[in-house]
Each structure stands twice: as C-alpha cells, then as structure tokens.
C-alpha cells in the first residue's frame, strides 16, 4: 500500500467511524439541544463523505438542507417546544402518559427498524460491481438539454420524481400551517451585529442561489441547493426580526409557494398534449424548459423552507388584527 492509499484509507476509516459515532451520540443524547448540535455536526461530516465519494451535488444538498436548514428547523422547534412546556406546567394540566401513549412511542422505533432492515437488504442484494444506469445516462445526455448528468436525471429522465418531491415539500408546509401556530412569542430585538449580518448576507445569498441555479446546468448545483440558499436567507431575515407584510403574506407568498409545482404541472400537461410522455421534452426545448422549471422550483423551495422555519401561517397575526 503506497502512502496516498494509506492516507485515503485512514481518512475513510475516520469519517466512517466518525459518522457512526455521531449518529449514536445524536440518538442517545438525553439533552435535545445537544442532540441537535451533534446532528448538525453529523450532517457536515456526511457532506464531507459525499465529497470524498465524488458526489458533490449530494454534498451540497446535504450541507444546505440536511445540516443547515434542518438544524435551524430543529432548533426552532425546540424553542417552541420549551415555550409550550412552560405554558403546560404553568396551567398545571400535565396529562399523565398512559400505557397506550408509551406503547405508541415505540412505534417510530419499530418503523425505523423495518426501514433500516429493508435498506440493509437492498444494499446487500446489489451486485458487487455495477456501473448502474450511468452508461444510459451518459449516452442520452446530449438530448437532455443540460450537461450535468445529475440535473439531467432529476429534471429530465426522472422529472416526475422531482415533481413529486416539490409537492411533498408543499404538503409539509400545508401540514404545519393546518396545525396552527403557538401564540406569538416575545422575541428579543436583533442587535446591531445580527441586523448588519442579515443586511449584508441576504443579497449575497440571493446571488448565490442564482449562481447555484445557473451552475446546475453544467456542474454541481440546481434547484434544491439554490432553494435551500434562498431559504437560508429567509431564516436569517426572520432571525433579524423581519416579518412579511400583510400583502406579501396573503398573496405573494402563496403565489410563489405554488409557482414551482404549478409550472411543473403545466409543463407536464403540455408534454402530454403535444403527444409525448409525461415530462418528456422535445430535445430542442429541453434546456429552456429545465431552466424554467428549476427557476420556479427554486423560488417555491426557498419560500417553503423559510415558511417551515416561520412555523405558523404568515398572515395569522394580520387576521386577528382585522
């Protein structure tokens, strides 16, 4: 074994065991805040592992959505949970956990175990050496309208997967909205540092999102990475105390939320009417259509993620005022 191989072997062993160790620490931690911080560290190490595996697209998505936005969502959820628990203990209405509730708590563990078993089974039943579908993808890349094979698969060859993913995100937000929010909490005003950070970083993040969107045509990047960057800008603005105005919350926010899914459905219908399969583009229009779909998806994903962090329906406060 030469030095380079040895160094790679040491690096891979460290990241592999580090991932398992962090995953266990996050699960076993009795303190939720600690578990969240370790989960974010896990996401960062996972992204590093994806880079090592030459999967830069997944690394970007993992670090932006897995570590960044999910971490922010978990922290926001923890803050609301703490506030809600204080309310409950104040009102002295603490319900005792019955046997059924405790049994129900085991259910996610059982489900996760089944999923894990299925994953292990499918990984073990894979052929040991296989090029997968990359040969077919490379052969058809010329007709896809883009040069990045990942974007070609996500937006062209398997466009309906992405269509469904966009709808899953929208459904998640609708679920959060239909649960109703907590009574608005008193938030400490943002200091000058946070304010300046938001003012400086928001335009940079918007520019970065546009870059990710554009870069996805040729290399790593695309709608999810760009959307996550936009979502991060939304999170930062909210942390700095920005709230959507009534007009924006009632009309524009909702319109942008459905813009991505609606564009997808329109293009899908258009391809069917034109006598092709669902989301099968004519090669000469493929590039334009993919850029159109990704632009809509980026805006929708960004505002969906920002909305998830926001928690309650953005126009709740204004309804009460009227």
């Amino acid at each position: 074994m030469d030095t380079l191989n040895l160094a790679q072997w040491v690096f891979d062993s460290l990241t592999g065991t580090g991932l398992l160790w962090l995953a266990w620490m996050a699960l076993a931690s009795p303190q939720l805040i600690r578990a969240i911080v370790i989960f974010v560290a896990f996401g960062l190490l996972m992204a590093l592992t994806w880079v090592r595996l030459d999967a830069v697209d997944i690394a970007l998505a993992e670090v932006a959505i897995g570590a960044g936005l999910t971490g922010a969502l978990l922290l926001a959820a923890l803050a609301k949970l703490t506030a809600a628990q204080t309310e409950i203990s104040k009102s002295d209405h603490r319900p005792r956990d019955g046997r059924a509730v405790r049994a129900l708590r085991q259910l996610p563990a059982v489900l996760m175990f089944l999923v894990a078993a299925g994953l292990v089974y499918s990984v073990l039943s894979l052929p040991p050496v296989s090029s997968g579908l990359s040969v077919e993808v490379d052969a058809n890349l010329g007709t896809s309208g883009v040069e990045n094979p990942v974007t070609a698969v996500l937006l062209n060859f398997r466009g309906y997967d992405t269509l469904l993913e966009i709808f899953v995100l929208l459904l998640a937000l609708l679920g959060v909205w239909s649960l109703g929010g907590l009574p608005p909490q008193r938030v400490a005003p943002a200091g000058p540092v946070l304010h300046t950070l938001a003012v400086v970083l928001t335009p940079v993040l918007i520019l970065l999102a546009a870059y990710f969107l554009w870069a996805g045509v040729k290399g790593p990047g695309g709608a999810f990475q760009a959307g996550a960057t936009l979502g991060a800008a939304g999170v930062l603005l909210q942390l700095a105390g920005w709230r959507p105005g009534p007009g924006f919350a009632r009309v524009h926010w909702r319109l942008i939320l459905v813009a991505g899914p609606a564009l997808f459905i329109l293009v899908a219908l258009f391809t069917i009417v034109a006598g092709r399969h669902l989301l099968e583009y004519a090669p000469e229009h493929a590039g334009t259509l993919i850029l159109l779909l990704e632009s809509g998806a980026t805006l929708s994903i960004g505002l969906t993620l920002a909305g998830l962090f926001f928690g309650e329906r953005p126009d709740d406060g204004y309804d009460n005022d009227n």
Partner: peptide
C-alpha cells in the same frame, strides 16, 4: 464569508 459569519456568530453566542 467565513470571517463575516464567524465574527458575527461569536458575538451572538457571547451576547
């Protein structure tokens, strides 16, 4: 970007 984020976050954590 890291300079900006690092300095700001350190300030926020300290505060």
């Amino acid at each position: 970007l890291v300079l900006l984020a690092g300095a700001s976050v350190a300030n926020l954590i300290t505060k």
